[in-house]
Design a protein around this nucleic acid. Structure first.
Lengths: 155, 155
DNA sequence: CAAACCTAGTTGACACTTCATCGAACTACG
DNA sequence: CGTAGTTCGATGAAGTGTCAACTAGGTTTG
């Protein structure tokens, strides 16, 4: 049944490639900026942002993993590296012997506070400033719909 | 001048996060499918697709690098790995002693021909089927504009 | 021609991600 | 209780991507 493949039309192909390319470029630029100016990677940033949004800056690995939608082993490796740099510390959990907390340190807070304004500016300069409000609405709707769809048929 | 930061509005924040998440999920799913069903990674696929589009399935590293917009060292590492799996071979260039060609092998052609239909189907099922033609147009336009902008101020 | 410069690709070190697997600790159920 | 199954997080190996330094082959220029 090789015949049944619905190949992409030129428009579809173009849209798909542009979209893909956009993300590659944007992601590359943003993470390079973050790295150069704050010595943080994108994932570092995501972890720190989340931890500052949570009581006492501490959260179980498990919840952090769910919140960022990472794999648990990725979290484990990544937190170990961040702990090595003093951005967070790991603490055992008294209630659950298996569990552990990730806690942001003062150095971690300092790093995220230094990085955030610059990062937001970059998101604006590189992306939001070049997209109209109505385009942004379309993009948000479409993204949300597709993400929900992906999450749905994950189960 | 901490005052001058233009933080994101809730709409902007939501759009940005949805967009980012879309890319993560979609990329993850597509590459996992490709890997599971064809034993090819996304980058493998990109290289093979490009090589099948080119006379004799051979091209200089340099041009391949430009076409895919990769760094040269990434290309060098990646081709070495692909060559190790027999998907391509490296050939010296007679005209320019520094240069080299990447050439797709029969195994490489077989792999891409097996993978392509399934990959296209997946792009449809996971993405295109959930986006209206008009949304797709908006997305394509916006992506192209922003990519061009990024490329411009790269120089 | 030779020195200075540029270009093609390689290499090694390191960061990052996934996968498979593991041990320890909790939970449920007979 | 006790064991079967699940969940938490750690670990090691392999693939991937980036950066900086390097080799070697061209090119330019005095």
């Amino acid at each position: 049944m090789a015949e049944t493949v619905r190949w992409l039309t030129p428009e579809e192909q173009h849209a798909w490639r542009s979209f893909t390319r956009l993300h590659e470029r944007l992601g590359g630029r943003l993470s390079r900026l973050l790295q150069a100016e704050s010595n943080l990677s994108g994932p570092d940033f995501a972890v720190l942002v989340h931890l500052t949004d949570v009581p006492d800056g501490r959260q179980r690995y498990q919840e952090l993993t769910r919140a960022l939608d990472w794999e648990k082993s990725r979290m484990s490796h990544h937190i170990a590296r961040m702990a090595g740099r003093g951005l967070v510390v790991r603490e055992d959990c008294p209630e659950d012997g298996r569990g552990a907390f990730v806690v942001i340190t003062d150095a971690g807070r300092a790093a995220i506070e230094a990085a955030a304004p610059r990062h937001v500016e970059a998101v604006r300069e590189l992306f939001l400033d070049h997209v109209t409000p109505s385009e942004l609405r379309v993009l948000a709707q479409l993204s949300e719909r597709v993400v929900n769809k992906l999450d749905d048929d994950q189960r």
